Simulated assay, not measured.
Amino acid sequence: MKASAKQQQALLVMQKCDTALARLTYDAQHLPEHEQLRELKQAREVKTREIASLQANLSDYRREASKVANDVERMQARIEVLNQRLDASAGSPKELANMQEELDNVTARLDLVMEKQWEGDDELKKQQAQIDSIRTESENLSQQINELTAKRDAQIADLQSQAQPLIDERKAHMVIAGPELTREYDAIRKSTGGIGAVALRGRSIDGMSVQFTPAEWDRIRKAPSDEVLVSEDHEWIMVRVDD
């Protein structure tokens, strides 16, 4: 492939931009807030499940409490009727004796049921208090999540603002490099995992320790300036720059 020195050198600017953009992308993906948010959301999910379970139990208790309350009301009504009849001596001695016996039995049962009602009310209060406590914890977690999300989003926005000038600079140098050379560079960069072009200064690659075989160095030395050199060992485009 042929390309002017200016076109080839545009690749070095594109590589600089791509390396910086990759670093910014990595930073955005590895913010500590990501893991912190995951843990907080998991904790909130646990609280949500706990509340749902306790509310189901609370509904069962309320249904039972409603039954007990109905029993209390029914027995209190019966006691009132029996007391009225006994006070009025409405009935024969035998009937009155039976009514007194029933009254004693109903009163005894009422005492037991009311005790159960008090215990149930106490348990209802305890469960509701537990639900309220867990709900408060869940709300606190939600607040932390909101605050941390805002912090994370602000950091990502800052990284994006840093990325935009690099994107613009890359686009400008893509125009200089031209579509064919840009496609070749992008294909190589994808194949190597990030490096598409390197600066060849004399017999050295900037920032790397690379040894050329005599045969490859002879190929590089003899290549015309407009020839796009690709490393035989590493696949990179080697852009020749002045010493």
Rank of each mutant, 00 (worst) to 15 (best):
Q29I: 02
K151S: 08
V175T: 10
D206P: 03
K125F: 13
K94I: 08
K125R: 14
S191I: 07
A22Y: 02
K6R: 12
I220F: 09
L229Y: 09
A52K: 12
L200H: 01
G178D: 06
R109T: 10
G91T: 11
T48L: 06
D132E: 09
N57K: 15
V68S: 06
K2P: 01
T182L: 07
R63Q: 13
S161A: 09
D243S: 11
D71C: 02
L58M: 14
L37C: 06
R85F: 11
K190T: 11
E80K: 14
L40E: 08
Q42A: 15
T192F: 05
V230W: 06
D158P: 01
E139L: 14
Q144S: 11
E64H: 12
E139A: 15
Q155S: 06
I51W: 10
G178L: 05
P179C: 07
R219V: 14
H234R: 13
R38Q: 13
M14F: 03
A43C: 13
V13Q: 08
A22V: 00
K190A: 08
T19K: 04
R109P: 10
G207V: 08
D153S: 12
D87Y: 13
P93M: 06
E169G: 06
V241C: 08
M174E: 15
A88M: 09
V230M: 05
P165Q: 03
